[in-house]
Design a protein around this nucleic acid. Structure first.
Length: 452
RNA sequence: GUGGGUAUAGCUCAGCUGGUAGAGCGCCGCCUUGUGGUGGCGGAUGUCGCGGGUUCGAGUCCCGUUACUCACCCCA
């Protein structure tokens, strides 16, 4: 077979990279479960009408068709999901009778989109979602909870610092209504373009498309400039002198989220109220989130979410929800391809048991078994090459220890990093804790290497 | 979908106005006789993306094609 070329948009990781991804997934899972979130996995496919509702036609859905289908158009009408929210909403309705509400769930799975790939944007990618869904009415404190849980999970990851930006749809909609905007939804859509278009252009759009006066447009932009890492945004909004009931509610809610996140705030995880944040999607009704990776703003948001008053509906009941998703592939793949993130070994093995000759393989296997029985990953040398070659084999893979057996049956273990070799007993020898598993190495922008 | 760029050894890349395919790193062997890394010496690398054309002769020029890649759009 000729050497296959990589498929654009379908990233594959090397073992030392996959280890990091797996570790990230494990960390998130542990945090989510610590907070009582139950894991689910939904099927990879959904009916096309589910995928295409809410005008999501821009998502470039991959359609599934059997090879033996009679005609190209005769497919079953199913496609791969492009996010985890749509399948989750369907799952909730389908299993409403069996689920307990409020239902906290996490879901770490792949999703697919046919859009043109670019750094940080792939056709097959993994994301981690948490959501809380309720029947009829979802208490507001869950908005605070999902932010806190995701923040806690992400803070434990070997990533550059992250920034959670929070805003509230009620706040901005109330503000826009308060200044007399007739079509707040259009204003929101235009304001969302602030990070792409210069202010003047956004102002012009507000006048031409949203029917605002120049005075009103200026007020909207003034609101959008407000960014604070505490609740002082409330005073600054008040100072603009706009009055509306919805604005009051929004201010109160956003302040509650910002306050509620104070415990998870650190130098590796920033939380800010950002009143320019709108998110283009129209189904958000209150809190909205976006996550950015500091120093990697060109990737755009690496996570996002918010509250939906109608996440799902079965005609009789509506199911409001609030959640956040985080792009695992989106953050990890760019870091890895730049060589900034990988494990320090290509294999899990902590020890390579050397082989004296083929006849003594059972002895080497026995040593390996003794080590494994105590949780130490190890492998036996492939063949009885010269010890120098066996050591080199370990070195290439990053295996830190090589185990030797003397002619008289004594045992010695060598730390090939230091060269130190000491007598050891397979029944009791234990490596330093940090050598038991591969370590994640990150290279920060100041190009210092640190272990996390 | 629109517009650029690229395709040569395992990797990163050179290869001029057409004339027998190159470097660095890595890999293998020996120096080193069963304990690696540093050093010295030696060695192997290849459908020059694919197809066609021009030419005595094409990695090089022309046409086509495929893949990759960057930007726009959009999002995790």
């Amino acid at each position: 077979m000729a050497k296959p070329t990589p498929l654009s948009g379908f990233p594959e990781l090397l073992p030392e990279q996959r280890f990091v991804e797996q570790q990230v997934i494990d960390t998130l899972r542990r945090t989510f479960e610590l907070h009582g979130f139950a894991g689910i996995e939904t099927r990879a496919v959904e009916p096309m009408d589910q995928l295409l509702r809410k005008g999501e036609t821009s998502k470039e859905v991959y359609v599934l068709r059997r090879l033996q289908e009679e005609s190209a158009e005769g497919h079953a009408g199913i496609g791969l999901h492009f996010d985890l929210t749509v399948p989750f909403a369907r799952y909730v309705v389908e299993n409403a009778g069996k689920l307990e509400f409020p239902f906290r769930r996490y879901q770490i799975q792949k999703a697919w989109r046919g859009e043109r790939p670019q750094e940080g944007r792939y056709r097959e990618f993994t994301q981690a979602d948490i959501d809380v869904v309720m029947k009829d009415e979802l208490p507001f404190h869950f908005d605070v909870e999902v932010a806190r849980v995701m923040a806690e999970g992400l803070s434990g990851l070997p990533l550059p610092p992250l920034r959670l930006r929070v805003n509230n749809r009620k706040l901005i909609e109330g503000f826009y209504r308060g200044i007399g905007a007739a079509d707040p939804q259009t204003v929101i859509t235009i304001i969302d373009k602030l990070d792409k278009l210069p202010e003047e252009q956004v102002a012009a759009l507000l006048v031409s498309d949203a029917g605002l006066s120049e005075q009103q447009a200026a007020q909207c932009l003034q609101l959008a400039t407000i960014t604070t890492s505490d609740t002082t945004f409330v005073e600054r909004v008040r100072a603009l002198g706009v009055q509306h009931e919805l604005l009051d509610t929004g201010l109160q809610e956003l302040a509650a989220v910002i306050d509620g996140c104070s415990a998870v705030r650190s130098d590796r995880f920033e939380v800010e109220a950002s009143l320019s944040l709108a998110r283009g999607l129209d189904y958000y009704t209150g809190t909205v989130f976006e996550i950015y990776m500091v120093g990697y703003e060109f990737l755009k948001s690496v996570g996002g979410g918010g509250r939906y008053d109608a996440l799902a509906s079965d005609g009789r009941s509506t199911y409001p929800g609030v959640g956040i998703s985080f792009g695992i592939s989106r953050t990890l793949v760019p870091l890895m391809s730049r060589g900034l993130l990988a494990a320090d070994r290509k294999v899990p093995s902590t020890v390579l048991v050397a082989l004296v000759d083929e006849e003594s393989r059972p002895e080497s296997d026995a040593i390996a078994s003794a080590l494994r029985s105590r949780g130490i990953s190890c492998e036996v040398a492939v063949s009885a090459q010269k010890f120098g070659k066996q050591i080199r084999y370990a070195e290439r893979r990053g295996i830190p220890f090589v185990w030797f057996t003397n002619a008289d049956g004594g045992h010695e273990v060598k730390d090939i990093r230091s060269g130190e070799q000491v007598a050891a007993d397979p029944a009791t020898w234990t490596p330093p804790n940090e050598d038991l598993r591969p370590q994640v190495l990150t290279v920060s922008t100041s190009s210092t290497t640190e272990e996390i």
